[in-house]
Write a protein that binds this DNA or RNA. Sequence first.
DNA 1: CAGAGTGCTGAAGAAGTGCTGAAGATGTGC
DNA 2: GCACATCTTCAGCACTTCTTCAGCACTCTG
Lengths: 222, 222
Amino acid sequence: MAARVLVVEDAEPIRTGVGIALTEAGHTVRTQADGDGFERELAEWQPDLVLLDVMLPGRDGFELLTVARETSNAGVILLTARDGVEDRLRGLRTGADDYVVKPFVLAELIARVEALLRRMGRLRTVLEIGDLAVDVEAGLVRRAGQEIELTATEYKLLAFLAGRSGKVVGKTQLLTAVWGYDDYAANLVEVHVSALRRKLEAHGPRLLHTVRGSGYVLRPPS
Amino acid sequence: MAARVLVVEDAEPIRTGVGIALTEAGHTVRTQADGDGFERELAEWQPDLVLLDVMLPGRDGFELLTVARETSNAGVILLTARDGVEDRLRGLRTGADDYVVKPFVLAELIARVEALLRRMGRLRTVLEIGDLAVDVEAGLVRRAGQEIELTATEYKLLAFLAGRSGKVVGKTQLLTAVWGYDDYAANLVEVHVSALRRKLEAHGPRLLHTVRGSGYVLRPPS
DNA sequence: CAGAGTGCTGAAGAAGTGCTGAAGATGTGC
DNA sequence: GCACATCTTCAGCACTTCTTCAGCACTCTG
């Protein structure tokens, strides 16, 4: 049930207070005083949600928001110092999911965090494609209620595809994402797709489709 | 960057105003005054996002929300007439992605629409030519709701033409864009255009026209 | 109306793409 | 160090798609 929350806020009392409050609410929290190393934290820790102060030393909240949108799919809540419609609109337009106006009551912040997590279906990170459920946190895969055992590679492959279901993913892309290769060895992907399919299709129709000449898509039968 | 937005709202001024504002923001919009034919529109047009007024004649917004959730994966924003916590909670519980309280400023509605689309990773590049839709990200082509299967070359050809629909594109231009050739082999293009037409025209009139001596145009019938 | 130019289409061989079983290589836990 | 699971490579097969070619139809020009 716990979510990972990354807090970027320069004012020490607020940063600490928010951190304690969120931890008490059962979430895992990491804090930063500025935007340094923001990308690394996003990529490595993969937070479910990011709390961004708009006014920061160095890169401001809007810049970090853009970064977050491009390199992760975490939810983003902005902390705006002013009540100005301008900031608020700019935040929403740039892609924030919500915003909280300072000064705020901690209880309200917690409420908004949980509301967003619930709205995003991220109080549990479960990706669903048709009757297939991929629980990213628990590393569990179920189809039609039945648990499916996958090897590490198969799981990484499926998780990556599930994260962008409906989109065509090239073999080269899979190779770099799952294996970290940069040289092209298409057959490697094919072999593992084949194995993955055998397990998935033991419980239902095909979900992992081939798009000849382009790659693969994970898509529910229509 | 355009998204397809379906607006269901009985009050004419709001319906029209929202429609115009969204269109100006670059989206494709369809509107309905009530829930009649809602299912058909969902299935055939496959909107990315649905704006639902809560208070509608016939089936209300909550009912339509349930329908949308069951039969599509469009995002849903509710327009609630009252500021009542009850409606808002019911909406979020039933699964709305966001809600906007009437009366609202158009700029805020647009901002929320775009915020949701971005959150969903659905600011998709969908090119539309008449009843033909080319979804570049998903590699999908649909005509009149029917999915059309294309080979890699046919797809590249269509995507290129769709990207400059209404303009005449020469064969040499197509050759360099799709094949990367620099030598002239007109018949190669003709063969693939022929194959492409056969598939497209199985579901409707000609869209891909020959301009004798110049090349081809993709244009809706008028 | 003839002749040249342009475009369309069916057929067939060539090339490409993807799938799978099997075998060797690598890794992991006991 | 052994047993086992997993990963990677390889080779062959099946199938699809691409390209070339040839013949025909149509249009424009003189």
